[in-house]
C-alpha cells in the first residue's frame, strides 16, 4: 500500500488499527462490567474467551465440542458447494453454447432463480429432516445459481471471430465448445465460484439456525434457547473466522489457477 498518499505519519498508520481493535474490546468489556448493558443481553469478551477454551473439550450444554460444530458446518457447506459446481458449471456451459440445452434448461431455471434459497428450508426439512442432507440440498440450491449464470455468460462472451475461424477449419460444434467456449469462460467461472462460496456460507448458517442438531448455527440457536449470550457470541465469532478462512483459501487457489491462464491474457 502506498502510505504517502494516504497519511503523512506512517507511525500513526501502524498504531491506529491496534488502538481501534483494543479500544473496541475494552469498551465492550466495560459496558458489561458496569452493567450498562445487562449480562442477559450480551456476554463480555472475557466470558466468551473462557467459553471458547472450555468448549474446546467440553461438549455440554449443547452436545458437541466446538471443533465438531465447525467441522459439521464445513462439511455441509463444502458438500453442497461441490455438488453445485459439478452440476451448475457444466449446465451453464452447455446452455451458453447449445441452443437445445438453453431452450430446455433456461425456463425452469429462470422460474426457480428468484426464490431465495432460505425459502427452501421448510420443504427441505419435510424431505430430508434436520440432518446433513437437507442442508446440503439448500446449499446446493443457492450455490448452483451463480455457477450456472457465470458459466453461461462466460461462454456467451467468447470471441465470435475465434469461433468463425474455427469454423473455417471445419471444427464441429463440440470441438468449438471444448476448444474455444470452455477456455473463454474460465475467468467468469472463477468469479462465479467466489460468489457461490460466500452465498453458501451465509445460507448454511441461516439453515442451521432453523433446523439442525449440530453445527455453528445450531450452537447459536442453543445459546438463544438456554439464554447464554456467551454461546451466541462465540458461535458468531466462529462463523466469521471460518468464513474468512475459507475465503482466503479460495482466493489463493483462484490466484494460482488464473496465474496460469493469464500467461495467455484473459481475452483480446
Amino acid at each position: 500500500m502506498n502510505s504517502e498518499t494516504k497519511l503523512k505519519d506512517p507511525l500513526s498508520l501502524k498504531i491506529a488499527p491496534w488502538v481501534s481493535v483494543i479500544g473496541f474490546f475494552v469498551v465492550w468489556q466495560l459496558l458489561i462490567d458496569t452493567e450498562i448493558v445487562p449480562r442477559i443481553l450480551l456476554a463480555s469478551p472475557v466470558e466468551v474467551g473462557k467459553l471458547l477454551i472450555d468448549k474446546l473439550t467440553n461438549p455440554d450444554p449443547d452436545g458437541a465440542v466446538l471443533m465438531t460444530h465447525t467441522i459439521i458446518s464445513l462439511i455441509e457447506a463444502l458438500l453442497g458447494y461441490i455438488l453445485a459446481l459439478i452440476t451448475g458449471i457444466p449446465l451453464g456451459l452447455l446452455m451458453g453454447w447449445f441452443v437445445v440445452a438453453e431452450g430446455l434448461a433456461r425456463p425452469p431455471f429462470e422460474m426457480i432463480r428468484p426464490i431465495p434459497p432460505v425459502a427452501w428450508i421448510p420443504l427441505a426439512i419435510f424431505w430430508f429432516g434436520i440432518g446433513i442432507t437437507g442442508k446440503v440440498f439448500i446449499i446446493w440450491a443457492c450455490a448452483v445459481v451463480p455457477c450456472v449464470i457465470n458459466a453461461y455468460t462466460g461462454v456467451r462472451m467468447a470471441n465470435p471471430t475465434l469461433i468463425q475461424m474455427a469454423r473455417t477449419y471445419g471444427a464441429s460444434d463440440w470441438q468449438i465448445f471444448t476448444k474455444i467456449c470452455i477456455p473463454s469462460a474460465l475467468p467468469m467461472v472463477f468469479g462465479g465460484l467466489q460468489i457461490a462460496l460466500a452465498l453458501a456460507w451465509t445460507t448454511l448458517v441461516a439453515a442451521e439456525l432453523i433446523a439442525a442438531d449440530a453445527g455453528l448455527g445450531y450452537l447459536i440457536t442453543m445459546g438463544r434457547r438456554l439464554l447464554r449470550p456467551d454461546m451466541i457470541v462465540l458461535g458468531m465469532i466462529m462463523v466469521g473466522l471460518t468464513g474468512w478462512f475459507i475465503g482466503n483459501i479460495i482466493d489463493r487457489i483462484e490466484r494460482r489457477l488464473t496465474a496460469g491462464l493469464e500467461r495467455g491474457g484473459a481475452a483480446t
Partner: peptide
C-alpha cells in the same frame, strides 16, 4: 471449410495458446 483459410482483420489468436498451439490448431481440429 478447411479448403479455404481465412486471415481476419482483427488478430484472431487463441490468447491461452502459444504460437505453436495457435498455428497447429487447424491441424488438430
Amino acid at each position: 471449410g478447411p479448403d479455404r483459410g481465412m486471415v481476419f482483420q482483427k488478430y484472431t489468436l487463441f490468447p491461452w495458446k502459444t504460437v505453436m498451439g495457435n498455428v497447429e490448431m487447424g491441424l488438430k481440429i
